[in-house]
Design a binder for these strands. Structure first.
Lengths: 129, 129
DNA sequence: TATAGTGTAATAGGAAACTAGTACACTAAC
DNA sequence: GTTAGTGTACTAGTTTCCTATTACACTATA
């Protein structure tokens, strides 16, 4: 797996797993791959994965069952909270950044739309069948 | 100054200065504050500021004149390139993140618009005189 | 009971980022 | 020439992140 060398790996792992939960690839109650499994598939040390998991456990999103595995909480409300929280933080980051560049609210939406258009040119999503 | 402890400080300094250049607070040819000055105002060590500047110099955006100071390049084209590059990377980051959350292109624009609305409620920009 | 699969803990070492401090080199202005 | 303001370079020490390795604890199953 590829990581941004400007952000701690354990933190990026956390983001990836959280994103999977929000996207529904990991449903409430689902079992995560074994820690050693995750470490191998991400080409990372076990301790690094564990550090990511520790934080997620502390935040109540992951439930750890010794000898059995790690599971996504079955509390749908926590997952929903997580979703809102992450979505907002992502949007806020873009908003703050573009704001610092003196981009107005309207321009901001326009820029995003334009970017998506450009993406569409090469991806062709929604168009090809 | 406040920094995100998940990203190297020197890198965040670079971002701040680049943003100021793009926003026009630092025009082409302008002299930057002295390194020691920047270090004090950012509550950071001189070496950390210098590391940020070194990269910007290597990238051709900042020109260093020994004994005189550091200056923004007067090459407007370089500044314009920088602007496009940063804008795109900011947009791409949001796009990729929301995409991982299974948010469609249309939803994405809607979410951003909604976020801006929410901001407007507390900021009241464009409304008050 | 033995074994395989799992989470957890602890130690040791290396690399990167940051700080602190000192010294040197160049420029401009007196 | 001296001085103040500037960039540049170097060394030393601390902290955080990451890796490697070993050991232990619990669960399920044959």
């Amino acid at each position: 797996m590829e990581f941004d060398d400007k952000v701690p790996i354990y933190y990026q792992i956390k983001t990836v797993i959280y994103d999977q939960i929000i996207a529904g690839q990991l449903a409430p109650g689902d079992k995560l791959p074994a820690i050693r499994q995750l470490a191998v598939s991400m080409t990372v040390n076990v301790n690094t994965v564990q550090r990511a998991l520790s934080e997620m456990i502390a935040e109540g999103v992951i439930i750890s069952r010794r000898g059995r595995g790690n599971f996504v909480t079955d509390n749908a409300q926590i997952v929903e909270q997580l979703k809102q929280q992450l979505m907002t933080s992502y949007l806020k980051q873009l908003y703050d950044r573009l704001h610092r560049l003196n981009i107005s609210d309207e321009q901001m939406v326009a820029e995003l739309t334009a970017y998506i258009e450009r993406q569409g040119d090469s991806n062709g999503n929604d168009i090809e069948d």
